[in-house]
Every structure is written in C-alpha cells, then in structure tokens.
Simulated assay, not measured.
Amino acid sequence: MSASPAGKLTLVGVGPGDPELLTVAAVRAIEAAAAVAYPVARLEAEGMAARIASPWIRSEQRRLPLLFPMVAEAEPRQQAWHAAAEALVAELSQGQAVVLLCEGDSSLYASCSYVLLALAERVPAAALRVIPGITAVSAAAAAASSQGIPWPLALQQEPLWIRPTPETPLELAALLEQAAVAGAVLALLKLGHRWSWVQPLLAERGLLDHTLFAQRVGWPDQQLASAVLVSAAEQPYFSLLLIRQGWPAVLP
C-alpha cells in the first residue's frame, strides 16, 4: 500500500458520444486538470472517451492513454487495470490534478471502475472524486422522444432493468419472462452481433413493435428506430435495445 499522494484524481463520465452532454462539473474538472487520462484499446488509438471530451481538452494538457485491451481473457485485463492504477499513482505523486475520462457513466459498466478498485488497494486515502455521466440508455430514450418516438424510460412504479445482452436465446427468453412478470422496462446493452438471433426471438414474441433500437447514441451517425424496422443483420457493438412489454394502468 502506498502513501497517500499529493495530487487529486477525478473520474469523469463523459456521456455516450455528444460532447454537449458533458455536465458542467465534468467540463470544469477537465479544464482544471494538468493531465488527462483515458482508456484506449491500442496505444496508437485515440480512445472514444477522449474523442468525446476533445472540445474541452487543451493542447497544453498532458494526455495519458491507458491501455485497456478488448479481450475475453481475464489476466490481460487485470494486468491492464493494475498498470493503469500504477500510472495514475505516479501522476498523483507529483501533486498533479488528473482526470480519468470514462465513456458513459463513470460507475455503470465502466472500465474505469476497475481502475478505481485497483487504486483503492494502493492508496485508499487518495483525494478522489467521481463525476457521473449521462448513460446511453437515458440518451437513447431522450433522443427517441425528441424525434417523435415518445419513450419514457420508466413511469410511476415501473422498474427499469439495465443488463448486458444475454449470451444465449434461452437466457434472454428467461429474462424477458421475468421482466414481464415484474412489469419492468428492459434496457439491453452491448447488443452487437447478438442481434442476429435477438431479432427473431423478439419477433416470435411480438415485441419488435414495443422495442426501440439505438446505435452509436450521441455520435453523428446515431441511429434510432423501432426494432420492427431493423433487419436481423449483425449490428455494431455499441447498439442497445429498450424493451417495453406493457404500460401502467393510469396514463394520459
């Protein structure tokens, strides 16, 4: 365990894609930082979080790309998280104000959360702040409503379940049944290639008309549509579904 460093680290959720969706707190934290850290899948890559926040990053600020490999194996990912934590501790030991950019929200399925846990092992008393960001789920619902597809995420006593898309049709079928019983709105993230079998499963259950498909929310090439209009072809990783299997009894 290291001594508490003199610097301060701020984890900043930068939202799903649109730079204008950063909060005032996020922009102020970025502006105040001497160094801006961000995850990359390859060291030569720009990184999506850095690209989102780029309008707010000044040329004189040091950039610190942190390698988070997109692999299924646990060991390379764990090594990367600990290496990122060590790099941040080194920055903080120099008394620097550092921000770590996180795509979406800084606590929801965020790679940066693993760095947060690794840092807690090393320097539990470090000066730390976490700034939340707008999730792709919230942004997708808002964008759909703005485009004439009214899509309140949850009303009255409705639960909202946010899940990664299950790996098999059997798992998804069970989740849909559970959500129907609970009256829950279901948000499925990381859809990607699974859409090729998710689409016919939803069609079989008559749910395509009640499902919103969203792709690359917040980016210039954002796509939003009723799932009934989307072919069963494989979709990019950053796609999601909002599935509503019913409505509350009391509505306007």
Rank of each mutant, 00 (worst) to 15 (best):
S4G: 08
G7E: 02
T10E: 03
P16W: 02
L22V: 02
E31S: 07
A32F: 06
V36M: 06
Y38C: 03
P39C: 09
G47F: 00
G47M: 09
A49G: 08
A53N: 03
I57V: 14
Q61I: 05
R63V: 04
L66F: 00
F68S: 07
V71K: 12
E73L: 11
Q78D: 15
W81M: 05
A84V: 11
A84S: 15
A85F: 08
V89S: 07
L101H: 01
D105H: 05
D105I: 05
S106A: 15
Y114L: 10
Y114N: 12
A120M: 07
A120W: 08
E121A: 13
V123E: 14
A125K: 14
A125H: 12
A126S: 13
A126C: 09
G133Q: 11
T135P: 05
A139G: 01
A139N: 00
A143D: 09
A143F: 07
A143K: 10
S145D: 03
A154C: 15
E158H: 07
P164V: 02
T168P: 08
T168N: 01
L170A: 14
A173F: 04
A174K: 03
L175D: 00
L188F: 02
K190E: 11
H193A: 13
S196K: 11
S196G: 06
L202Y: 12
A203C: 08
E204Q: 15
L208T: 12
L208R: 11
H210A: 13
T211P: 03
R216I: 07
G218R: 02
W219L: 14
W219A: 08
P220A: 13
D221F: 09
L224P: 10
S226G: 15
V228I: 14
Q235V: 08
P236Q: 01
S239F: 06
L240Y: 14
R244C: 02
R244V: 00
Q245W: 02
W247L: 10
L251W: 13
